[in-house]
Amino acid sequence: MNRLKAVALLILLLSGCATQVTSIKDGQTQLAKAKGYLLLSVETNRDLKTIYINGPQNISLGSKDIRAGSNYILVELEAGSYTFERIQLDRYWYMKLDEEYWQVTIEQGKINYIGHLELVRPRYWSGVSRVELVNRSSEALEYLEESYPVVLSNYPITNSGPGEDDFFDIAASLKKD
């Protein structure tokens, strides 16, 4: 985490070319060809302003979707490799994320769970003490079962976050039994 630094910068310097995305509604969309769903949860102890994610589509998550607490986000994206570029903490502070640790892949025709982004900022005026993309697959699956049963029944879910993990396969095997 030491390699992550927060740097003060005027809001005017921020690039504005990313498209702000918000979660889809369950059962209202069909995945377009060459697209997949990105499933992410942002767990933060402070309101955040923007999260920028670049790839085949450059997107951003806006302040309404990344408030203090738990924020699940399910969005449709073009398949391909994406990188979390930076997190705008407030008007004045952002943190750049290390590319090595913040790359995920979106596979077409699937729900791609990329992890829970956990962020801890001890005080409003301080930097971030911890930011990590954590595998909490089972919680994500429980969330989809509760909030997106139609999407979940139409598309397979896969772990697209860090490391190897076959939990979704084990969970899927329950349905076959």
Binding site: V134, P162, G163, D165
Partner: peptide, 14 residues
């Protein structure tokens, strides 16, 4: 309870 998860639970803990 999932020993393989011990090795890669997050992007920074793997």
């Amino acid at each position: 309870y999932d020993l393989q998860l011990l090795y890669n639970v997050s992007n920074h803990r793997s």
